[in-house]
Design a protein around this nucleic acid. Structure first.
Lengths: 155, 155, 155, 155
DNA sequence: TTTT
DNA sequence: TTTT
């Protein structure tokens, strides 16, 4: 009835983007959420990083494609989906992913994702990606697979 | 950084509960979240049910053990955790679960999980379940792995 | 950037529903969320009830109108909105409300809101409301101001 | 039963911090959440900024005091609380606030809150603030009853 | 004003 | 395997 996931974390690699037959765009992101856990017994703090597979469709895929790079900090809202199949050894396999329905870029406008600040992008993307990199990388509120509409709200 | 899941759904089977060496209690729940999806093209409404594996520890496991039965409607808040191992065929396997940090029972006090709708509590559960059934079955706000404490809040 | 409220609670009174000029429907709900707070010092448990003003528009208003009654347990997702005005004494006044973008009814189908099970509804609503009462009162997944659409998703 | 608020936004001013008798620390933040709303009729996009009053206690107040400045981007999780009183004109007054139970700083480590983008920290804050500014300003995951710090995230 |  |  309610199946909701909220993530804030860093992107582990540039998004994988492809277009399905029919032109529908899909993107896939790996997102790390790191937490520190204090063990009262041993008085030690341990760090645990969890990696999440996020799938984005259409507009959200496009936003990811244009603005998200390895190292970007993002907010994701979505829902859980587990796919299953039978592998070559005849075993039932499962993979759980988050299907996004919202995506926001965090940090300030000029934020350099990852090591991109100091260099490294050099020539690795084609013209379009290049230019979107050099254009002002928006901070949040891009996105919205279903842009809100209003007509006569009295406020 | 933020790794949060919120579920509202129905429990597919009585909880599996066990105690680890050391006495720590763990429970496992299967929770179904069903959504209806309207396809504008075909004008059809399709239903999709997603099944979630939820793990509860200590107090939350105890609450699940005592109050949750097949059919119960519950609210779960928790975080995603993916375990991995190598199976007998040498393949890397993954399983994603939700580790609960909050659990509330939904519906009203007298709500019958599952077939209880017809008022057939009388004898319909075994001894143990009986007694937990006949004790005041709380609606919500049981739980709390980390019970809130207050001492001097000025409100 | 993110302004999100999630409530699960009981409705304090039947919804107030009206139609604006132009036919747009609006409903207002009062929702109580009660929590129990344990004070370790005094070893006492105190209960605190918080009352929330929820505004619902269009489809959600219609769902509230038809299915929600005093005592209903509901899930609300929405966002915070504070209105301000100047009162007759010239003071700036503020009122904060939750504008809903999702609404689900909790509990099982046959759940009686409040004391409605044993009586009281009798004749208190007009024909339409009556019939909607006697029609299957949906548990959840009614609603959706923005119904999901799918056309070519590969799952 | 569930009374949950999630905010991501920018802080409008340095936190107001004070200590109650007994030494308990409290901080108050003003947080702006801005959304863009597309009006299909007029094909215009309007921007709306909502301001939230957030109250933080003890550890969270301390974190706010040390690390949050005007312009900081933050994640807040908390619950709604409405206080009421009677004003000098005898009117019942209400004020709604969010009592935080989690706080994370967003953006990367070196992120300059507000006008800091140009590296102009030099002398712009008073002594105490200075030192907290010059200490490693963590990006997120400080905070909370279980303070979390990061310095060497590999991405 | 709801619920437990 | 739940619920509607």
């Amino acid at each position: 009835m309610i199946n909701k996931v909220i993530l804030i974390g860093n992107v582990g690699a540039d998004p994988e983007v492809r277009a399905l037959e029919g032109g529908v765009k899909v993107a896939r992101l790996r997102i790390a959420t790191t937490e520190r856990i204090y063990n009262r017994q041993t008085q030690e703090t341990k760090e645990h990083t969890e990696w999440h597979n996020v799938t984005l469709w259409r507009n959200l895929a496009d936003v990811a494609d244009r603005f998200i790079r390895k190292g970007s900090q993002v907010y994701i809202e979505g829902s859980l989906r587990t796919r299953d199949w039978t592998d070559k050894d005849g075993n039932k396999r499962y993979a759980t992913e988050i299907v996004a329905n919202d995506l926001k870029m965090l940090g300030r406008r000029g934020d350099a994702p990852a090591s991109g600040a100091d260099n490294s992008y050099g020539g690795s993307y084609g013209g379009a990606a290049q230019s979107s990199q050099s254009s002002p990388s928006p901070s949040g509120d891009i996105a919205a697979s279903a842009p809100q509409e209003v007509d006569d709200l009295p406020f």
